[in-house]
């Protein structure tokens, strides 16, 4: 292991680091919106849309991201839909993450005690008010731990983007190994790179979880 090699490769890893963060951010935001939307459809039992959402969730949860990416990146062009690598990666991450986020939100919404909803009805809230003031604030707080777990999961999944040649962290490390045989150094920087993103994030998310719990239960 040589420190000069590490130092020399740092600029290129820095670029990869920001790319990983950028793609993760787009993916996570997209997945959260998709998941929120899907969980509303499920919660309000909207016919037809509900069945579609269920099919989507099962397909997305029971297949690996790698094959989803291959399908988007290699198979779609054959039916006339060419999508650049980075966009394919983000679409793949949203497709995968949407179902995990939907399950997280659904879990939270289903966790709101029945007595809360009945009390809301008893004081004469309309359905919309019930959703706005009773179900969502409590349900979303309940879903925070599952969402936090998904965020970390999705960031880790970006390492699979390497298979469609997006120069994120893992791909960059493999490149360095392939070109210069700096195996130990590259793998070391790679692990540190993920640790820099994930360790502080998991601490922040634990803190957030505790705050959300405080908001719900007051202890």
């Amino acid at each position: 292991m040589s420190w000069t090699v590490i130092q020399q490769s740092l600029p290129i890893f820095e670029k990869a680091f920001w790319l990983t963060l950028k793609l993760s951010c787009y993916g996570i935001i997209g997945a959260s919106l998709l998941g929120l939307f899907a969980s509303f459809i499920r919660y309000f039992q909207i016919p037809v849309a509900k069945q579609l959402v269920n099919v989507y969730i099962e397909l997305s949860r029971n297949t690996p991201l790698l094959i989803q990416l291959f399908f988007i990146y290699y198979a779609f062009p054959e039916i006339g839909l060419k999508i650049p690598a980075e966009t394919s990666g983000i679409i793949g991450l949203i497709f995968l993450g949407g179902s995990y986020m939907a399950e997280a939100f659904s879990g939270g919404l289903d966790g709101v005690p029945k007595v809360q909803i009945e009390s809301g009805k008893a004081i004469g809230l309309s359905n919309l008010q019930l959703a706005r003031y009773v179900i969502f604030p409590q349900g979303l707080a309940l879903s925070v731990p599952a969402i936090a777990a998904n965020v970390i999961f999705l960031i880790k999944e970006t390492s699979i983007f390497t298979v469609i040649a997006i120069p994120e962290l893992t791909n960059t490390a493999l490149d360095q190994i392939g070109m210069y045989y700096h195996t130990d150094e590259s793998l070391f920087v790679l692990v540190i790179g993920y640790a820099i993103i994930l360790i502080p994030l998991s601490l922040i998310l634990t803190w957030l979880e505790r705050r959300a719990r405080y908001g719900t239960f007051g202890h």
Binding site: K156, E157, S159, I160, T162, T170, A173, L174, I177, T183, D184, L187, L190, V191, Y194, A195, L198, I199, S202
Partner: peptide, 19 residues
């Protein structure tokens, strides 16, 4: 938990033989 599985595979695949 923190190291992605892809990276774990590469770690073992490259480091065991080399070091």
């Amino acid at each position: 938990r923190i190291v992605p599985t892809v990276v774990l595979l590469f770690l073992f695949y490259y480091i065991l033989p080399q070091n």
